[in-house]
Simulated assay, not measured.
Amino acid sequence: MSNVTDGESNGLSPEQRLEPRNIRLIDPSIATIDDMDTLRACVAYENTHQNRIQILRRLKRRAEELRSEQA
């Protein structure tokens, strides 16, 4: 079992989710984020390493989806 506080939900680190060998895997990687801790870790990683606006928007959308699922 992975430690969610380390930003590794489903066994993937933020780097693995946001820097796959095939760029088309980013969307499915973001879609599999199932908790806010992992999402925050991915946002922090993206802000620190790439700061790609499109990826940050996708992460924001996923955060909105997670919040609506919890409501």
Rank of each mutant, 00 (worst) to 15 (best):
M1E: 06
M1P: 06
S2V: 04
N3E: 10
D6E: 11
D6Q: 07
E8Y: 03
E8N: 11
S9Y: 00
S9K: 01
S9E: 05
N10M: 13
S13K: 12
P14A: 08
P14F: 06
E15V: 12
E15L: 12
E15H: 11
R17K: 14
E19I: 00
N22I: 02
N22P: 00
I23R: 15
I23T: 11
I23S: 13
D27C: 02
D27W: 07
P28V: 07
S29F: 03
S29W: 00
A31P: 02
T32I: 03
I33S: 03
I33F: 15
D34K: 10
T38E: 08
R40D: 14
A41L: 07
A41R: 01
C42Q: 06
A44N: 12
A44D: 12
E46Y: 08
E46N: 11
T48A: 15
T48K: 15
T48P: 07
H49W: 14
Q50T: 15
Q50K: 15
Q50W: 15
N51L: 10
N51M: 07
I53C: 04
I53V: 08
Q54N: 13
Q54E: 13
Q54F: 06
Q54K: 14
I55Y: 05
L56E: 02
L56Y: 03
K60N: 10
K60L: 11
K60Q: 14
K60T: 10
K60H: 06
R61N: 09
E64F: 02
E64D: 13
E65W: 00
L66T: 11
L66H: 09
R67C: 11
S68A: 06
S68G: 00
E69Y: 00
Q70K: 12
A71Y: 01
A71K: 04
